Structure formats: C-alpha cells, structure tokens
Simulated assay, not measured.
Amino acid sequence: MSQGLEPIAPREAAEMWLDRLQSTRADETIQSYEYRLKPFLEWCDAEGIDNLNDLTSRQVFQFDSKRRADGLKVTTLNNQIGTLKQFIQFCERIDAVPERLPTKVEVPTVNLSDRVNDELLPAERADRIREKLSRYQRASRQHAMFELLWHTGCRLGGLCSLDLQDCFFEESDLERLRHQDDIDQAALEAVEIPFVYFRHRSETPLKNKREGERPVALEQEVADCVQEYIDINRVERTDSTERQPLFTTEKGANARASKSSIRREVYILTQPCRWGGCPHDRDTMNCEALDHGKEARCPSSRSPHPLRTGAITHMRDRGWPPEVVAERVNATPDVIREHYDHPDPIRRMQSRREFLTEDSA
C-alpha cells in the first residue's frame, strides 16, 4: 500500500463520488457516469483489486486495452475512460490512489469523422422532416416538438420541462415575469417576443439545474406552430403538481409526455421511409424498425441528441459565434467546439465571407 493513503474499496469510492455529484449534476448525468464506470468496477472485481491504494497506471492501461479488445467504438471508449479519469481525480483528492495517478490516465482522442456519422442529423434532413410535418401533420404534437428541438437546440430534458407558462408569444405573457427577483425588470421593458423560458424545477430538472435556466428566442414561424398546437391539438391536462405541461398525453397517469415517448417519436420522425422510400433496400412491409419499440433499429433513425448536434452545427454553419450558441443551448464554448461542431467546409467558408467584406471596407 502506498504511504499516506487510506484504504478504500473501488465500489465504496464510486458511491462516494456519485453521491458527491448529486448537488451539482442532474440525475441522468449521474446515471450515465454510473453506467460508464460499471465496466471498471467489474474489472476490479475480476482482477482482485479490492483497495484503490494499490491501483497503478499500468493496471489502468490494462483495463483500457481490455475495453479496446471488446470492440468498443472510439466514442464509447472516450466516454468511459474520460469518466474513469474524473473518478480517479476524485480518488486522489480523498487520498485513495497514489499521487499524480490521474495525470497518467490517457483519454482516447475522438476524431471528427468518428463522431459525425452517428451523432448528427444534417440540416438538409431536418428541413425535409419539417416540411413534411408542416404539410401532413401541421401543428401536431410531433410537429411542435420537432420545431422546438431543432430551433432551440435544447436537450430532451429541457423540452420535457416546458409548461404553458414558459411560452411567451404575446406581450401580455410578459406579465408573468413582472416582480420576479431573478428578472431584470428594466431589461424586461425592451425584451422582444416570442421566446420560451427553460426553468429548472424539482419535478422536471434541467441538466445543469439553475445554471441551465435561460430564455431562448424563437422565430415567429416556430412560435406560430407551437401556438397552433396549443390552440388545436394540445390535450388540456395538468400534472400531479397542478402544472400545465406544454406537451401532454391523451391518457394515462402521467399528463406530461415522458422522455421515452418523445425519444421514440423522434426515432419515428427521422425514419426516411415515413416520408418516402427506404434508402437501405428493406422491405417496408416487414422491416423490424417499424415495430413498436424497435424504431431505433433503422440505420437512418436518430435520437434527440443527434438532432441537438445537428441544430448546433447548423447555427455554427450560419456564422453564429461559439459563445452565442453556447448561451442558447446551455453549454460552454469549448464543449461546442469539441463535441458539437461538425462543420461543412463550404458552408463555413460562406459564413466567414461577411468578415472578409468588413476587412475590405
């Protein structure tokens, strides 16, 4: 055992770390950390490592090699080893692992090409889906949800958190913000509508909690679509806390549309065969991806996260600075550049032309 360290089992340390994160991370984030750390804890059990004081950089390297041999995608490996490094950094702070061990943990680098294929819904596809929804399912719940996801770049949890009172489409709606301590009343006098306000509440938490709260401006066309949904197709229901969810269910105990149901609807909306032919030469009469609960098995279907990635990339391709995009979607500029920025070189060149014109003036 290394001198000056206090013995602790890997699982006990993991529980301490995850418990410590409870005050600063959303439940879903903690669950993802727990999921990513699980293979390491199982490996420790198999290798007889019952005290982190004895953990060496060579053993971490051996674990890394094993996960590579398991055939993991580089993006998955990046997430798992990155989370492991954060965990070992915590362990160093509580005198559980040898000093400087975290600096010896190498997180695999993810190339841009490794991310793009599976993690982005291209703007062209999003526009086609929006066009079809506007034509065939105008102002439906699916239409309104897709428009907000694409236009705001919000997370799935943020979309689920929205209530009717979070929609500010008329000047009279601004009265709901009067006299609120966290609102600059002077700025409110000049604010423009329409916008939605993402709020952190205990029943519907945002990923970054209070720091994730923000108003997000909408184009009038998007606000009109959401308002039509509210006026025509929204099922009037309140949840167990007497809140009025923006996206409701027709029946069942939960009035608010769940994350799983919205995720499934996004999978369905991004299946090409829903709007035309199958690009994978599948028999659309017998394709398993058309069965309930199996929509994600379509190679072209996407979950809400790639939709968020595509939306953020589209903002950047239109010339939006990373700092502006970051505030809109509740992320840091560095995260925008590293994880979400998958530029099309031609579009990015075009977005830079305005700066070329300014320099020539």
Results as ranks from 00 to 15, higher is better:
V226C: 02
R20S: 14
S300Q: 08
A296P: 01
Q244C: 09
I230R: 01
F61T: 14
W320S: 08
E170C: 12
R68I: 14
G153C: 06
L77T: 02
R263F: 00
P7F: 12
T56S: 15
W17T: 09
I268A: 01
R199Y: 08
A255N: 13
R264T: 10
L101S: 03
L307A: 06
D45Y: 11
K207T: 12
I183A: 04
P343F: 09
T238G: 03
T284E: 15
T249K: 14
A217Q: 11
L206Y: 04
H143I: 07
H292E: 11
K66F: 11
V110L: 07
F195L: 13
E323W: 07
E42D: 15
V74H: 04
F198P: 04
D239M: 03
D181W: 10
E219S: 10
R210Q: 15
I232Q: 12
E295G: 00
A190E: 07
F198S: 01
T241G: 03
Y33M: 08
I88D: 02
Q220E: 15
L121G: 05
M16T: 06
N233W: 06
Q350P: 02
Y197D: 09
C287I: 10
E228T: 08
R210C: 05
S240E: 13
N233P: 00
L37V: 11
Q89K: 13
L5R: 10
A190N: 02
H151A: 08
E47W: 11
P272W: 04
